[in-house]
Design a protein around this nucleic acid. Structure first.
Lengths: 196, 196
DNA sequence: ATTATTTCTAAACGTTCGTTTAGTTATTTT
DNA sequence: AAAATAACTAAACGAACGTTTAGAAATAAT
């Protein structure tokens, strides 16, 4: 599963669960961003030694990639629900509400890790992570398009415009998740969908 | 003007213009963000020695604060135009277009420095900069409210909702300024204002 | 012309960063 | 039980960070 973890001839057992410590790392990255999160902080939060981090994940960058995977797994429940929905626009709105609920869990107001990462790396030279984030958003846009096509007479051009609009609206939602109240966020979502 | 620059008994003249080098620093911060921009990069971009930076601006943090002031001066033209406008909602839309134009100057697609800074510092402990950004956005929200009240029968609650919606829409616009085409940005702005 | 003061260059400062390594401990294999 | 091997702890690594300092160069005042 994890690229740097051994599987055969295990002389001594790992005293930690890799999935569990990745989730802890993910929460720290989510809260602080990539650069601000130091290996020292990760050591403390994950409860394991630096050596263990490096032998399991290669380096900080590798750990971050695993953290992103972990985040995707975390949101996959919402995403699957969204993918399987069949009501059209109403599904997108519900997806927005579900996303906010997920980001409010634990009352930490950390926004969306994908959006945060996208913002942090947008002027960075790390192509791999940028492409990961862009791919995630492109997939989301495709899903928006798919749902917008349900029960509608709108032409293709309008649908593409609306999908792009909704994708950008999600940036606003991520910002809102960090500062606004639940009520304000609700108002924002409702207003976003008035003209869709 | 600048807190660390001397004014009296100047034995040797400064070989640089402080306003000019701050603008260069601002452009670098704008492009890369605060943390990613190192003193080395600033030295090179500003064309002066580290010592000169420290004697003029105290430290990196001080230089960033001056850069933010410089940015505000830069956008003050747009902001003043917006403040003096009297047509209502149409003025806000024009302000959105003007903001995009300003951010596209130089074709660097750096987004909005205030929004970028707000994103970078949102989970940071730097209260001063956070408050500066929040204050800037609060002022903007107040202006939105003021313009929304022109030629309207809408009640106070609706206006507050719409102002908050527009403020969050500006986050989407900042994200769009970095990746979307001019046409896509136009579509986004038009769609944002359909239901206002 | 000399002195005082400021700016300049360039090197070094202490810290922290991500990363690596040496040596101990624990478990499996022989 | 002995040997082999993997995971552990803890210290150290070089590089980069923001910041400071020592000394040379330049200008003002005397």
């Amino acid at each position: 599963m994890f690229p740097f973890s051994r599987k055969v001839n295990m002389a001594r057992k790992k005293q930690y669960n890799e999935d569990l410590v990745v989730e802890k790392a993910m929460n720290l990255f989510w809260k602080n961003g990539y650069e601000t999160t130091s290996m020292q902080m990760l050591e403390k939060e994950m409860g394991i030694n630096k050596f263990s981090i490096y032998s399991s994940f290669g380096n900080k960058h590798g750990l971050f990639l695993e953290s992103l995977k972990c985040y995707k797994t975390k949101v996959s429940v919402i995403l699957e629900k969204f993918k399987n929905a069949t009501n059209g626009v109403e599904d997108i709105k519900q997806f927005f509400y579900d996303s906010v609920d997920a980001n409010y869990k634990g009352h930490d107001q950390k926004g969306c890790l994908v959006t945060n990462t996208y913002n942090e790396f947008s002027e960075n030279e790390d192509q791999l992570i940028k492409e990961e984030m862009i791919s995630f958003m492109d997939n989301l846009k495709e899903l928006f398009i798919e749902k917008l096509k349900i029960n509608t007479t709108k032409d293709e051009t309008t649908i593409l415009k609306q999908a792009n609009y909704l994708l950008l609206a999600k940036h606003g939602l991520a910002a809102a998740s960090r500062v606004n109240t639940t009520k304000e966020i609700e108002d924002y979502i409702e207003m976003t969908f008035v003209n869709i």
